[in-house]
């Protein structure tokens, strides 16, 4: 899989195999239930704020729509045999948001940050992980790379 900045200030993801396409499709699978993020953020507020009633539904819809958008963009590109998935500057926030949800969800499930600190610079140890955890580790690294590219070339470019 290659990821390249485009001349119009966006990003192009170029999957090279079915496995690469599948990896992109896993973004939205990894998110799980977007409502969970909205609810966990609401837990930070006191009940007096009525956050659950007035804010959570809007946040949930916002997070859901990010996932729907990304899933549809990947599906459309794959079904139409397009060479890659293009992310324009106008679409970047939706993509970033969906990928961020996936990373937050992976972190909640696997505590990858703690894992990363213990296996840094020791790829051999990564290969010794259970397959499910190892897969989550590499997906998280891929999502992190995509986010960094978006920040560097699209969302906060000088």
């Amino acid at each position: 899989m290659n990821v390249l900045p485009t001349l119009d200030g966006g990003l192009c993801i170029l999957p090279e195999s079915d496995a690469d396409w599948h990896e992109l499709e896993l973004i939205c699978s990894d998110v799980g239930r977007p409502a969970h993020l909205a609810e966990s953020l609401a837990d930070l507020m006191d009940s007096d704020s009525e956050w659950e009633q007035y804010v959570v539904p809007e946040l949930e819809e916002n997070f859901n729509s990010q996932c729907r958008y990304v899933a549809a963009a990947i599906e459309h590109a794959r079904d139409h045999n397009e060479h890659g998935v293009f992310i324009t500057p106008a679409q970047a926030e939706k993509w970033y948001g969906a990928i961020n949800q996936a990373r937050l969800s992976l972190e909640a499930r696997y505590q990858l940050d703690t894992l990363e600190n213990t296996i840094e610079d020791a790829l051999g140890e990564v290969n010794d992980l259970e397959p499910e955890l190892r897969s989550a580790y590499f997906r998280n690294r891929f999502y992190l790379f995509l986010q960094s590219m978006m920040l560097d070339y699209v969302m906060d470019a000088p």
């Binding site: 970033y96 961020n100 990373r103 937050l104 972190e107 990858l112 940050d113 986010q147 920040l151």
Partner: peptide, 9 residues
């Protein structure tokens, strides 16, 4: 602080 959101973000 959280372990996911990037500093630049």
């Amino acid at each position: 602080d959280d372990p996911v959101n990037l500093q630049a973000y």
